[in-house]
Amino acid sequence: MNHLKKGEFYGQTNQTIHLDGLTLTDTVYTQPKVDWHYHEHAYFTFILEGNVIEGNKKEVYHCPAGTLLFHHWQDAHYNIKPEGFTRGFHVEIEKSWVDGLFLKADNIQGNMNLSDPALKLLMYKIFTETKIQDPTSPLSIQGLLLDVLSQMAEGRQSLLHKNPSWVATINEILNDQFADNLTLGFLSETLSIHPVHLSRDFSKYFHCTFGEYIRKLKVQKSLSLLSDKRKQLTDIAFECGFADQSHFIRCFKQINGMNPSAYRKILFG
């Protein structure tokens, strides 16, 4: 089985950034199939464009643009790339970096397909910082990555404490139907929970309001769609459930600190 060293990925690497204990790469996948292999360090894979299939000993993931995966140290997996252009962003984390910050590595074990929109939005910000590359970018990248790892650890602790079953159900509903005009009444009836309790307890488990969470889902979806050069901003706004393009731009800028056109320029260089 192939063992890939730091900074090594199958394909054409466009950019590599080395920080203290971190390696960030922007790679175009060129091989239709990559057999079983593992990497020296734990790392995130964030699909920026196209799609890829990844399998490990437990699961197979179909990964379109916007997919965020985490791979623990030396976990074996394989990849299949369908036809078309596929590009991935990777953040490798050396164990010394984790230990130096007194983080608990056992909180982030295993291969994971991360669906939390907050984590994906943080990863988009990390990617953006690699393209800005001003003197504050290294500090910003490390701070954003710490936020990602901290939220992952909190999510794992929540699973260990067994959240109520409705938490997973409502998360599935919101992720599937965020572009629809959902109402508190509909959600309350679907989950058989009183609207007052649902509204109050949602913030407890999701750490934000209904509106904030749905906006994150919409913006997260728009970021993946912006990788398709054929799509106009008006089309993306409609597909993501925004009332119009101006609302889309305003919400996007509020969350990402830039407008969609500026992000698209960063994405395509």
Rank of each mutant, 00 (worst) to 15 (best):
K81C: 14
W73H: 15
A65C: 03
E49A: 12
H39D: 05
K58G: 02
N79K: 11
F89Y: 13
G88F: 00
D26M: 02
H72I: 03
W36R: 06
L48R: 06
N79P: 00
L22T: 03
E54K: 10
F44S: 00
G50K: 04
H77N: 11
T45K: 01
D26G: 01
L24S: 03
Y29K: 04
L19G: 06
H77S: 13
K58F: 12
F46H: 07
Y43I: 00
E59G: 02
V60I: 14
A65L: 02
V52H: 07
D35L: 08
D75Y: 15
C63H: 08
D99Y: 09
H37Y: 04
V91L: 10
E59H: 11
S96P: 00
D20Y: 03
N51I: 02
H77K: 08
G55Y: 07
W36N: 05
T23A: 01
T45R: 02
H18F: 09
S96T: 14
A42L: 09
D26C: 02
Y29E: 03
Y78T: 10
C63K: 08
D106S: 13
L24T: 01
T86R: 12
D99M: 07
L68E: 09
H90I: 13
E92Y: 13
K57S: 12
E59C: 08
E94C: 10
N56W: 06
G55V: 05
K81Y: 02
G84N: 12
H18V: 08
I47Q: 05
T16Q: 12
F70Y: 15
D35K: 06
E92W: 13
E40H: 05
T27V: 12
H71A: 15
Y29C: 06
Y29L: 14
T67A: 07
Y29W: 07
W73I: 15
V60L: 08
F44H: 04
N51G: 05
T67D: 01
Q31N: 09
T45M: 06
Y61P: 00
E40V: 05
G66R: 09
W36K: 08
F44E: 01
D35M: 06
V60R: 09
L48P: 00
D99L: 10
W73A: 14
T30N: 08
A105D: 14
V28R: 08
I17P: 07
Y78V: 04
V28E: 13
F70D: 00
E92T: 10
D26F: 02
T27R: 07
Y61G: 03
T45L: 07
L48G: 03
V52S: 11
H77G: 03
G84D: 11
T27I: 07
K33T: 08
K33A: 11
K81T: 13
T23Y: 02
G55A: 15
D26S: 04
T30Q: 10
Y61C: 09
D99P: 01
D20A: 12
A42K: 09
T67W: 06
F44A: 00
D99W: 07
H37I: 02
E92C: 04
E83R: 14
I80V: 15
F102N: 14
I53F: 10
T25E: 02
G84T: 15
Y61L: 12
I80E: 15
K33E: 14
D99S: 08
N79Y: 12
S96R: 12
D106L: 07
D26Q: 01
H41K: 02
E83V: 13
L103H: 04
H41A: 04
A42P: 00
H18W: 05
S96E: 15
G55W: 07
K33Q: 12
T30L: 02
